[in-house]
Design a protein around this nucleic acid. Sequence first.
DNA 1: CTAGGTTCTAGAGTCGGCTCTAGGGCAACC
DNA 2: GGTTGCCCTAGAGCCGACTCTAGAACCTAG
Lengths: 147, 147
Amino acid sequence: MPETPCAQDLSIGQVAERTGLSVHTLRFYEREGILANPVRRGPGGRRFYNEDDVEWLRVCILLRASGMPLPTIRQYTELVRQGSGTEEERLTLLRRHQEHVVAQIEKLTQCLDLITFKVGVYEDHLEQGPAGQLCAASSLPGNAEDD
Amino acid sequence: MPETPCAQDLSIGQVAERTGLSVHTLRFYEREGILANPVRRGPGGRRFYNEDDVEWLRVCILLRASGMPLPTIRQYTELVRQGSGTEEERLTLLRRHQEHVVAQIEKLTQCLDLITFKVGVYEDHLEQGPAGQLCAASSLPGNAEDD
DNA sequence: CTAGGTTCTAGAGTCGGCTCTAGGGCAACC
DNA sequence: GGTTGCCCTAGAGCCGACTCTAGAACCTAG
């Protein structure tokens, strides 16, 4: 049922601009059930969004950015769509993801430590023997890496 | 030129065990040029690895885990294979990745903040109205999310 | 001597997450 | 009335990183 678009309605292109997603991705997300409210359609079947949709998308983008897979986002979206009564489940889902993100940060911090260590090693190495290979045997055996 | 395997040589299966990669992935990584030294072959064309290879793989796994794409790992591997003289390039590559990881951690920390906030909101909500929906209008309009 | 386990190669398949194409509609401007 | 520009659908294509299959060789134990 195509409604008359009102002032604050946004076209898919405008939403793309505001969210940084492509129009392709917006349609794709819709197919994937990632939109909290069903998209209204204007004449000619054109989608209309509002600011709430944009807000919701921003949340989804953030969830994606933190590694939540689309199926999980859909699950969360469905819970929200079902309205009150699903709060506990939403909480559970968010908590699980929270743990996931914490774990990711820990892992990355670990990696960062090693990378930073390696960077340090190379910096020292380049400071000490800047031009040629003065001390040839210092770090040869294949990988100077392994310590 | 199949060499005689010596005591510390490891089969692909043993390396898989030690690294947590599958044998498939090990062969795949080899094809992708991710191994610092060329894999030696025993009779029947069987691969033999040593502890250094395992160490190198562990580094690669860590780089992967921190989001370095395989082509970049290959690039790094090639620099290492080329030996001394490429230290500056390796440093540049590692520094770039370092920045990347730092940015990732920042992003994730941002996401975590929002998720934690949301978790808090739901916790409060569930504490206040635990059983039924006593305060029906408190968070209805589609997404209780948008603030 | 056979059965089971490990390995080999080349190449196909999978999965997640987009991204793009073809083919068409509608509206506005020149 | 043609051109430009945004929009539509259905479906194909792509990319990264694996993951698996088929068919065959080898080694070891029973």
